[in-house]
Design a protein around this nucleic acid. Structure first.
Lengths: 123, 123
DNA sequence: TTATTTGTCAAGTGGATACTTAAGTATTTT
DNA sequence: AAAATACTTAAGTATCCACTTGACAAATAA
């Protein structure tokens, strides 16, 4: 209730980069090694590794190294954090829309005196 | 189908900044003027105006100026873009999990020779 | 062993960007 | 008209961040 959520920061920052989202898209096809991830990506392997660090610290991706190959996959809860934040804002906003709708839906009782033509300003 | 989605880029980039998310949170309480948005924000009015430009170009916020005051509100479709992208990745990933689940759920037919105790690699 | 694959680390660079200050515009108030 | 309000715009700055190069480490293949 009163707690901060520093995860949110990291998650949205991570999602803010197109290359990182591309990595997530690829990973949503299934687990994959670092070099296979890098293959279609127009950046060096080193860059991909750096992105993976960000993604892992944000909780969006899990990795495990076996032998010389590190296998990456999407982490269970990661995207939920972002999804929930967005969901919350949307419901709040829609509730706000509803209130507006209620007002506009009762022109009889409220006697909104909207002049038929000619607004104070604009267009 | 074959089109690029530059909206997604802008939306996620916009959401990547904490101050911009704070603005959206405030706006989810309802429409608000620029200066009222700036009030609790530990940055100057000018900075808020710049953030609002980003938010508006990304389609997350709508503004309208009447007289000398610009009123801002959350834009209808904006958050949906992000929500849908996240939703898509999640379903893809869950489908992938399902496949894995199917494999693990039928040890009889498939003859997966998983040794009863002891996975190939550590926990 | 030697070579290849696969990834890691460190340092540096260039460009993006969040922020500030300061000056300017338009609107409303007095 | 003069002053205050509510932004707007421009320019400068400092930091962050994505990316590269290059050297290095570890596991596998020849």
């Amino acid at each position: 209730m009163h707690g901060k959520k520093p995860d949110i920061d990291r998650v949205f920052h991570a999602l803010g980069d197109p290359t990182r989202r591309a990595i997530l898209e690829k990973l949503s096809e299934g687990p994959m090694s670092v070099s296979r991830l890098a293959e279609p990506l127009a950046v060096t392997l080193a860059a991909v590794v750096q992105h993976l660090q960000v993604l892992e610290e944000s909780g969006l991706v899990q990795t495990e190294k076996l032998g010389r190959v590190r296998t990456c996959q999407i982490a269970p809860g990661g995207l939920s954090v972002a999804a929930q934040w967005i969901g919350d804002r949307r419901t709040l906003w829609e509730r706000c829309l509803d209130r507006l709708g209620e007002l506009l839906a009762e022109p009889d009782e409220r006697r909104l005196d909207v002049p038929t033509g000619g607004r104070p300003k604009g267009e």
